[in-house]
């Protein structure tokens, strides 16, 4: 009997010693959430953007093909009809969208509280705080050793927010050796210690009170149009032949002002 009592005591102490103290689940119900798929559909005006092979024209009748169209979007905020905001967390709000990578054009935002949303806001580019963080905090879409390798200025530490590269169309029998590509690399987050060019642009898209998000929706989707022609036209008409290259110069602000208006809502699916 004494041996059994000792064994039971040992068992009791062991159980108490090894028992984990788990915090109790909160009594209040968790907020219901859902995922939203967002699709970025690329166009030149009203034509779908097809890289390399399709011919396009701008408003001043300059003809070109497009070989690259990439941009960062980040810092997404969804605003409800009651005025409250859902801010997508920093660890999942940076996306690199590329025409050359169809998968990158379809993003999904998780854990969005259910409700009725009227506006989506985001930044084209990478905010200054993130731009100045050490490399270990710039991973995923921002990893310059991987996803962001060709969207980064190594000589002026910072991201290229938008890249549009086009080729002029050479008429049959024309001289292709004189071809100058049209290269637009727009960046500049405003500087670390001293003010420099700030080409970060904010976009507000009116959802028209059409996004009514229910819990665990498998279908909620926003289809967005990105009109690449609006990079080189808008408040400033870019003459491709006279301005074939724009990188970090004051003129780049004009292009950023143009492409600030390149996004629009195609439709919303609940």
């Amino acid at each position: 009997m004494k041996q059994l009592k000792n064994k039971l005591l040992l068992l009791l102490f062991t159980a108490v010693f090894f028992a984990h103290c788990k915090p109790e689940s909160p009594a209040i119900p968790a907020t219901q959430t859902s995922t939203i798929a967002i699709s970025f559909n690329h166009f030149i005006a009203d034509s779908l953007l097809v890289l390399n092979t399709k011919n396009y024209s701008n408003s001043i009748e300059q003809n070109f093909t497009v070989d690259k169209f990439n941009y960062f979007i980040s810092n997404i905020i969804l605003e409800k009809t009651d005025g409250t905001n859902y801010i997508v967390p920093q660890d999942s709000c940076y996306f690199l969208i590329k025409s050359s990578n169809k998968a990158s054009q379809n993003i999904s935002i998780k854990n969005i509280p259910v409700g009725n949303y009227r506006k989506m806001s985001f930044m084209i580019g990478v905010d200054s705080a993130r731009s100045c963080m050490p490399a270990s905090a710039r991973t995923g879409a921002l990893d310059v050793g991987a996803a962001a390798a060709d969207m980064y200025w190594t000589w002026n530490t910072g991201y290229i927010f938008l890249k549009l590269q086009c080729m002029p169309i050479i008429p049959k029998g024309g001289d292709s050796s004189a071809v100058i590509p049209y290269v637009y690399h727009i960046g500049g987050y405003g500087g670390l210690n001293n003010p420099t060019l700030n080409n970060i642009r904010l976009v507000n898209l009116n959802l028209g009170e059409n996004l009514n998000l229910i819990a665990n929706s498998a279908t909620a989707k926003i289809n967005i149009k990105a009109d690449a022609l609006k990079v080189i036209e808008g408040s400033t008409q870019v003459n491709l032949n006279s301005t074939p290259t724009v990188m970090l110069t004051p003129f780049s602000a004009n292009i950023a002002n143009n492409y600030q208006n390149m996004f629009s809502i195609i439709n919303i699916i609940n």
């Binding site: 100045c132 050490p134 490399a135 190594t154 530490t157 210690n193």
Partner: peptide, 8 residues
């Protein structure tokens, strides 16, 4: 001074 962090 185009780079402001030694790591970069």
């Amino acid at each position: 001074g185009g780079i402001f962090h030694l790591d970069d």
